[in-house]
Nucleic acid binder design. Structure first.
Lengths: 189, 189
DNA sequence: GTCTATAAGAAGATAGAC
DNA sequence: GTCTATCTTCTTATAGAC
């Protein structure tokens, strides 16, 4: 009864990685199965369809995001420190972003052109960050916290995408510095 | 001898649209063929492989970009007016971007995870804009014209991506206004 | 739970008639 | 140039033995 859980976890972990590095459509069920040394048939026992597996992957990412945000809330009571922790997260992923893009952004771009249900699922990752950022901006006394939240996400996504297209880590660092300057310039009650 | 050209053009036009709205990997050769009322076999007579067709599609886009930039150069001698024309282009595509994302950005994200040759081809579209913007910033007397060019592209891409993820046209308009404010704030000799 | 075997279909691509 | 027919490979998914 525990072993089943372990296999499921291994599948989701492998799928998360492969969907990220190769893309959802370019990754076959066989790819994932062989990655962890099981067969396609076995994988289909745990996940009836590829879509179902994708949903598990997104849920996996969602949980990770939620945990991170909770952690940050505990570690950084000061709002601007929270915003900067968000920026730092992007910087920490520099090499992956350069090679594979933002895991959240690229998945949304890919799934956006598929079914609506998948599109909505993928968007939920953005919502997680957007709602958290909105909360932080409110904490700073901003009435347009929704706008600011989306603006910060927009800048971060632009930076990630461009650094991915040009495989340029310096570009990412430069753009993140600009974002930090923007954060510094914000009013705070 | 002219008719062949016409068929090729029709194929490229249809493929350009479908690759954009459905994604490259989600679009089959049959989709394109049936869209313009020809058969797969016929399409393969004009383009040996799907990759070859993709290359033609990207070249088609590249030519369109080149033509647009030349046009803007003629129409707007003033550098800031040129930059704003670039922003206006994004605004003009609002409804398409909302639904399908930036044609250049999303194609790059999708192809980035494929072969290197395709990745480079797709990046050429960005280069077209990047070089033109760099020229404009140089014209304004900026020494960091390369950085500014990428920064502007980064902001525009972020705006397009976020407005796509949230299917939110107002978000796009808001972000573009911010970009225009940034352009206004730039020094000019 | 995990395997082998296989179905069922879609995709890219080719051959040959017209 | 355009069609029909076919090939081959890959993919998702299922059935049934162990």
């Amino acid at each position: 009864m525990e072993k089943g859980k372990i296999s499921q976890d291994r599948i989701v972990t492998a799928a998360t990685q492969l969907f990220y590095t190769q893309g959802y459509n370019q990754t076959s069920v066989s790819d994932i199965a062989s990655e962890i040394g099981i067969t396609k048939g076995n994988l289909h026992y745990h996940f009836r369809s590829k879509d179902e597996l994708l949903e598990a992957v997104i849920n996996h990412r969602l949980h990770y995001i939620t945990d991170s945000l909770e952690q940050w809330d505990k570690e950084f009571p000061e709002p601007k420190a929270r915003l900067k922790r968000f920026v730092k997260m992007v910087l920490n992923q520099e090499s992956e972003i350069m090679r594979y893009g933002c895991p959240m952004g690229s998945l949304n771009v890919e799934l956006g052109k598929c079914q609506d249900s998948l599109r909505n699922k993928a968007r939920a990752m953005f919502d997680e960050f957007a709602n958290w950022l909105e909360k932080v901006f409110k904490q700073m006394g901003h009435k347009d916290s929704k706008t600011l939240s989306k603006h910060l996400l927009s800048m971060a996504q632009g930076a990630a995408l461009m650094s991915y297209v040009y495989a340029d880590g310096k570009l990412l660092k430069r753009e993140l510095k600009e974002i930090e300057k923007w954060i510094d310039s914000l009013a705070q009650k």
